[in-house]
Write a protein that binds this DNA or RNA. Structure first.
Lengths: 321, 321
DNA sequence: AGGCCGTAGTTAATCGATTACACATGGATG
DNA sequence: CATCCATGTGTAATCGATTAACTACGGCCT
């Protein structure tokens, strides 16, 4: 910057003013400065700027698993919204691992992100407290924690799940396998509670960890137990379950009715296409980013609760008639 | 930091020494400092540190499309490797868009990443030159640009593609539809050249843009033209093509032979399972991160060329006998 | 003419770290 | 006993920006 100033025959203060679009500089000086910048190929050091202004124009996003397309879509949406407001997003991948999650959150705080979006790996409020204590704006996304005091953005699947339950019961299923998420995550617990609640005593629950492997194992257990319907509580466990179903050469829906929480572009391509509960991922991501930016802005955004929708495609068989 | 120093009755220099594990401080002073840090909940400002040391311990990764699982896997691998060496990764999503790509690259440079991994959207060397001119370590990943002078990490599909071509020809296919990537990307061009080359005059090529929509459109065109085999040059276009095939109620492999470049976890679940050319995504990501770290370290890593493998699963029909 | 004001630009303090250099202390050496 | 060195710590310059406070200049009013 000193070089630019010298080159243009002004002081660094003037260069800074030009760069920040302040009122002061004459159009003529402005020109000279811009020319010097151009000529020297100068780019301002964002680190120094941030140090001085205590604003990085950066949001942190810590998600549970980058390989899960659900989170990838969310990340994408967050990024879009943030960029449109001049913010940049740093993504941290916690891998459904509490320790890695904490490490990432701390790294992001150390780098002074202006705000943090977190999809907590568990419902333990420890980490959230730590962030709040540091006074950094925080919004929870998809999942919440016990006694959360910050804004939360999530999808509500209750309606869709009860509708699904009603159909299964109506079609005469009496042994319904539920591949549930981890009970120490809000989404894992809530979805399962709603579904088993509406199924009365017909549900058989096995807990997985929101990953493919646990999906196949859970499916194997439940199929051994003789269930006639299988519901996976997220797309990765659904993928695992489908693998197990295929390995046993079972026909959907004839041998087994099947549905998944989370939609994926390839679900309609299966035969039959898979019935799902679709979450509005893009809207979730955008809403979360907006809430966080509002918070950074000093406003106090409300919680956002979007609704997930049951999409019937055929994998439930007669339950869809 | 001043507070910590005061609290421990030492100078900031000593605090800094403790923090950086320098030899100097007495075990006893060290203890006092650590206690003060603990008590005050002090966390050091990474911005200030980076400003002074001119090292951010951060790698930039600009990928073409976060929603493409191929890139998501790569990102994941890069991140793993980087973290294991104490580096953090900032991901930028270019969305197969040159302008957004340039914006992201510049943002990352402004934030003084220690090195940059780039999956270039086109083979235009402009942006690469700009980065090199700035003296920032750069490694290209998956794709290269014309006249690249920096290390490149990619997968070589030539062998797999010729093997695939041989099988198609051997099975008697005479009209083979190729859903190609954009000709201004190295992967788009090279894959297509190899395949059409080994197919003699039997190939019919339609160019897509590595996204789902273009895959369905290209498939529609080619199917209208009466091809008996369809090869998609990446997984998203493959997804689109499958949609079109399904919409027309065509049977694979009876009505149409089908294969895709890129593997995906759900390909084995289709009926029949889809034959693919699988790229070693994880190894690519790790290798790229390693190369970049070597470059940052002042070493001069070689280009890395891994091989993609043909995985036969049944969607080619008799071509697989 | 003298006082006042607005404008364009400069000087220098500051953000929070790192680190070269200076300094003090104490034990070993000639 | 003076000298020297090793060791642990403090002082202050520095990284590259922003910005409050100040100066210089010219015109306007009375």
């Amino acid at each position: 910057m000193k070089d630019v100033a010298q080159h243009a025959g002004v002081s660094t203060a003037t260069v800074s003013r030009v760069l920040n679009g302040h009122a002061a500089p004459t159009p003529e000086t402005r020109e000279r400065v811009l020319a010097a910048i151009e000529e020297l190929g100068y780019r301002r050091n964002a680190l120094a700027r941030s140090l001085r202004t205590t604003s990085t124009q950066t949001l942190g996003l810590v998600i549970s698993d980058l390989l899960n397309p659900f989170f990838a879509e969310i990340a994408r949406a967050v990024e879009d919204e943030a960029r449109s407001q001049g913010y940049c997003v740093v993504i941290g991948n916690a891998d459904e691992n509490t320790e890695q999650e904490a490490t990432y959150v701390r790294t992001l705080l150390d780098r002074r992100v202006d705000g943090l979006l977190l999809c907590p790996a568990t419902d333990d409020p420890g980490l959230v407290r730590e962030v709040s204590a540091g006074g950094v704006p925080l919004v929870l996304l998809d999942r919440t924690v016990r006694g959360a005091t910050c804004p939360v953005v999530r999808a509500d699947g209750s309606e869709a799940l009860t509708a699904l339950a009603r159909r299964l019961v109506g079609a005469g299923h009496t042994r319904i396998g539920v591949i549930a998420g981890p009970p120490n995550t809000s989404t894992g617990r809530e979805r399962t509670d709603v579904l088993t609640g509406s199924l009365g005593g017909l549900a058989q629950v096995v807990h997985g960890d929101f990953r493919q492997g646990s999906g196949s194992q859970a499916a194997a257990r439940l199929l051994d137990d003789g269930v006639t319907a299988l519901i996976a509580m997220d797309n990765l466990m659904g993928l695992g379950a489908l693998g197990e179903i295929r390995a046993r050469a079972l026909q959907i829906p004839h041998d087994i009715a099947f549905a998944v929480f989370d939609d994926q572009p390839w679900f309609p391509l299966l035969d039959p296409p898979i019935t799902v509960i679709a979450q509005p991922t893009v809207e979730m991501g955008r809403a979360a980013a907006r809430s966080l930016l509002a918070l950074i802005d000093g406003r106090q955004p409300d919680d956002v609760r979007l609704t997930a929708k049951l999409v019937l495609r055929g994998s439930l068989g007669e339950a869809e008639l």
